[in-house]
Design a protein around this nucleic acid. Structure first.
Lengths: 223, 223
DNA sequence: GCCATAAATGAGTAATTACTCCGTAAATAT
DNA sequence: ATATTTACGGAGTAATTACTCATTTATGGC
């Protein structure tokens, strides 16, 4: 478990602006809360531990946040809206615009490599977001509207673009294509995480290339 | 949330044998614990609520289980070993042996339809298992060894069989093929669950057929 | 430097937590 | 039927929980 809580050292999350305007104490509290939540989940975390981790008195916490749940929302919602969501979209948008002229297989490979790094770095954060979204509808809603939907739209735009260029089959719904590549890619990430020994000695780029190739064999328009 | 906790009414889980030899009280406690855990997760569940739900005194619970965590393990581990795991494998094994002579696309469609029903019915149970496996290594280990690995082996066996018959490409690792179909299928299930309105008015069998078709276009040996 | 305002503290609170203990009821053996 | 063992109940316990409040400390304007 040497790689625990890397998000907090992550240069991006380490920036206050993602949380709006905050006093130093508020910032310390949210940072501590995020650390504790990612380690043990919301329910198993205690306000006293958050206070200890933040280096403030427990009373201070409740001057800034009325309830424990409010801490959870004040931590995860801004992160999803201002960090995770844009982080998901930006890179996709840039890649698909910037490399518009490249063959699709090259673009897809670039996207997958980039997303792999991004998701791996953010995983502890994403994990707690996903888990808590199961128990807190407010989080689920923000996750859907500010992360999942954004990512989808980026990818769908890209696929439609390529489809209109005649590079992808016209008789196939882009939504279906998206599920196909995202699913295969997701399965690869899960497999890497569950069976590191199985996947790590393979060449990563080669694996991604095969994923792209499999996808294109099913979706590419006949030339 | 009308479809909450269907597992408990599920005829299979409603059977004591999956938990080994149990007295009536023990069985009532485990059933109640499973219900509460699936509703709120382990940490947010209390032993007093489990007792109330089971209709026994709180002291009775601790006569049979020393700690709260022991209740969790006594509930989920036998379920994984005796119910989820075998349930995952049996159907796969039967289908792939029974329909050995059928074209691969038909077999895959049958498998996916069957697995879809199975996973949907078990989802609340699977969800709590997956979530708690993140916080309890004992659960993660059993989940990997008694569920995930079993499913993998079944599918790999099937794919290898078809590969040796010359129906699947020889130059592609079956492990990669498995990730591809499982990923696309998983993405469809997730998509169905997150965007029911988007997916429900499509013809389900048709969607599954497309998933199979996409998979085979990438993996089928050239005829 | 002094005061007014705001922020932070940490001891405190009521409620809840996982867990215990002993009296009683039920089951089993003789 | 009686004795012995086992299962059960439910009041109880110490610890912990989320949260409060009176007091102290820091801040900023003059």
């Amino acid at each position: 478990m040497a790689d625990k809580i890397p998000i907090l050292q992550h240069p991006w999350v380490g920036e206050k602006p993602f949380f709006g305007e905050l006093t130093d104490k508020q910032w310390k509290i949210l940072k501590a809360a995020l650390k504790v939540f990612t380690e043990k989940g919301y329910s198993a975390s205690t306000t006293s531990e958050i206070a200890r981790e933040a280096g403030v008195a427990e009373g201070t916490i409740f001057r800034h946040f009325n309830t424990k749940k409010e801490i959870l929302l004040a931590t995860l919602i801004p992160l999803m809206q201002n960090f995770i969501g844009p982080g998901v979209t930006n890179s996709l948008h840039n890649l698909l615009l910037e490399y518009d002229h490249l063959p699709m297989e090259d673009v897809l490979l670039l996207i997958l490599e980039d997303r792999q790094k991004h998701i791996s770095a953010l995983w502890p954060l994403l994990r707690v977001v996903i888990i808590e979204a199961n128990y807190h509808p407010e989080l689920k809603e923000v996750l859907l509207n500010n992360v999942v939907t954004l990512a989808q739209e980026s990818l769908l735009t890209f696929l439609k673009q390529r489809q209109s260029k005649g590079e992808l089959r016209e008789d196939l719904d882009v939504w279906v294509m998206m599920r196909s590549i995202v699913g295969a890619f997701g399965a690869y990430l899960v497999s890497q995480s569950l069976f590191p020994e199985r996947e790590q000695d393979h060449d990563n780029r080669q694996e991604l290339k095969v994923i792209v190739d499999l996808f294109l064999r099913g979706t590419q328009a006949r030339s």
